[in-house]
Design a protein around this nucleic acid. Structure first.
Lengths: 228, 228, 228, 228
DNA sequence: TATGAATGAGAGTTCATTCAT
DNA sequence: CATGAATGAACTCTCATTCAT
């Protein structure tokens, strides 16, 4: 993730001694252990209902150690959201890039989100979508940046598809609106069908319907025909 | 909203004395004053960043008075969400019922949401969509019920439209998925274009695009043709 | 109980109008209703766990009315303890006075306490013995007076018995010590066998043993022989 | 008392480092300091009249520290009662066991209670007997267990004495009733002559009379002759 | 680096008491 | 006399954060 650890030269050269390398490896493991503990608890109990003591306990380190690796509780959430959004963009983006920027790409990317990302990382989805709101200004600001980044991915994809098919967007903001709508659909569908135990449904089927819904929306707004 | 006030007979008969009626009216005013103060602060700073003391101060009452009218802080949020969702359903539902259960109805309902509800009650939208997540189990449970109610409204509307046009839904869960997607779109579009000061756009235009997007989604999933 | 009601002439003469007499009667009923409500709640939940609001609710009056009849919460407890101790002294003392100041009188008085007072008024016993400790200085002071009064009753009885039988007490404080011991026995036996649901025993049998125990104690200290 | 401190392995092995041992010792000292402060204030002002802030102030720690060592205010009282009852049982029981289970043992144990325990630890007696009633259900339950334990000690002693002297108890519950009566005597005598400043008497003399009183009671119920 | 005891501001909540009507 | 809404001081408890070891 390229996270630069505190007070540490990010020197990957092999000039480091064996001991130094071991220490660096251990540091990174600790960092991840703590982050994983936070992920587990934030997703299970929520950010505000989780205390640093609980995180330290689960990670089997002292509270002091948590504060050595992370500036404060907010930082812990921010780093977590960064990791999650990085993984999300990597997985979904990679799938889209396999196609030649077509609506089919949106379909495949959507399936990857519902069938792979949500299924493999339900806790990450919970945090991404549940702890992304109602936070302090500082965190809110950061979250907006993340969402803008993911939004940009979608807008870029939309524009390339439009270019490829020779179509355009009726309004200046249309691509952005579509992007925002898609994010809303992803969030609500994932939240409803993944975490509320009441719904015992096949996430694949649900994902298919949701993807078809948004494909329809795009076509309707842009007069595109699926090149599927 | 027909909220029954604490320790009060809900006696609407005119047998009440003048003094008693005045007191009851004052009680309801106080109740609304406090609720309004909570709305303002929750929407500006967020639920967790708002203290009961601040609410009392803004409402110009003592903390004790807040607790006279509301069981606790959670109750304050729940009553608020109830009032907001009641208003939302009333406004949007009334507009839909003006049509004869057609896709056009969805369009008009969507416009009412974006152009009327969001514009007139931006704070209510913030609370409805920002404080609806990451809360304690008790609140989460209540919120789920509210969302289910609104979701049911949409599903009912969808089914009546399908019936009217002689179409159907491909899958058992399709109507529910569409409903959930629409809620997601509403949430994200409203949140993005209403409260992030960066975007100075015409909410009407944005709303139009969003509504067209979801209309396209419905048609695509159900093979409906707009009877607009 | 001779409790003088607030701001009221304690005029029992028949010069009062019918209406005035009715009001006075109603006042006394209210007073008793509130006291009874307090008794019920204090005995069930304890003094500190009971609020004035609860008492008012159970008595079906407003909190203001409670404060009209009683100076404050402490006063409520004090009046209650006065009533209880008055009844206790009346019942037990009356029984003792039926005998000619003999050890037999102690026996009969003890039986009255266990078989009559405890059985008929378990809540009064709870309050008398459970709320008599751990209170504020003002209440503590009053309780000490009550206990001294009951203690004096016993000491008087002991001295009359000693006089009747020509015996004496070895030490200056002996009568007082016996009296205190008897009170301790009454308290603990009543508390253990009356209110802890675990013990399903015959209070009469238990009372008999307890009474015999204390009779033995008296004899041993004073070299008396039972004139039973 | 072998109280296990929070989050600590109860590792008594000498494998602990010097620093770790020092920290453990300091933790135990702090724990005792806070408990001692609570004892002082509870005994002087009563449990309900004492606030955590006062305890923290007297112990010269912060409120947070109090809550680091004790779960809550109730826990503080419970730990205190445990320590007191442990000491009481140890002192009185040790004295009784010096004799060969005779009435003389009861005498000596009684003297130890009045002359040693009460004189050395008047505050402990206050708490033991004044805060043992009128508490919340949770505390009440715990207190009942403690009293049952002490009661059992006495019953055991009584049964061994009866066995030694070839006597028996008239009823099934007699030993228990005697035990309860003795506890009542201890409580009332200690409370009256130790803490009510009005009585400046020799606790030894008072104790002697009280002990003789209960010895007489036992003999009378069991037809025992003192083997003194 | 790692620890974990200590901090203390601040939170939510209760409740005896008052007083205008 | 009776009401009950209003008060606000005081309480218990939490927890992010620090720092000496």
């Amino acid at each position: 993730m390229g996270k630069i650890l505190p007070n540490k030269q990010n020197n990957n050269s092999n000039s480091l001694s064996v001991a130094a390398r071991r220490r660096q490896r251990e540091r990174e493991e600790r960092y991840q252990t703590i982050l994983k503990a936070a992920e587990t608890l934030f997703s299970r109990d929520g950010y505000h209902q989780t205390s640093i003591n609980q995180i330290a306990e689960l990670a089997e380190v002292s509270v002091g150690t948590v504060y050595f690796y992370f500036k404060n509780k907010e930082d812990l959430l921010i780093q977590l959201l960064d990791e999650i959004s990085y993984l999300l963009r990597k997985m979904v983006g990679a799938e889209f890039r396999k196609t030649e920027a077509s609506l089919d790409g949106f379909m495949r990317a959507g399936k990857v989100f519902f069938s792979d990302f949500c299924r493999l990382h339900p806790e990450k989805v919970t945090i991404m979508y549940r702890e992304s709101v109602g936070q302090s200004p500082l965190v809110s600001e950061h979250i907006k940046k993340i969402q803008d980044k993911i939004g940009s991915d979608i807008i870029d994809a939309l524009e390339r598809v439009a270019e490829n098919t020779g179509q355009g967007f009726p309004g200046e903001k249309t691509a952005e609106i579509i992007s925002t709508s898609i994010l809303g659909i992803y969030d609500y569908i994932a939240s409803k069908y993944l975490f509320s135990g009441d719904y015992a449904v096949d996430i694949d089927t649900v994902g298919d319907d949701a993807v078809n819904f948004l494909i329809g929306g795009i076509q309707h707004l842009c007069n595109l025909e699926s090149n599927k």
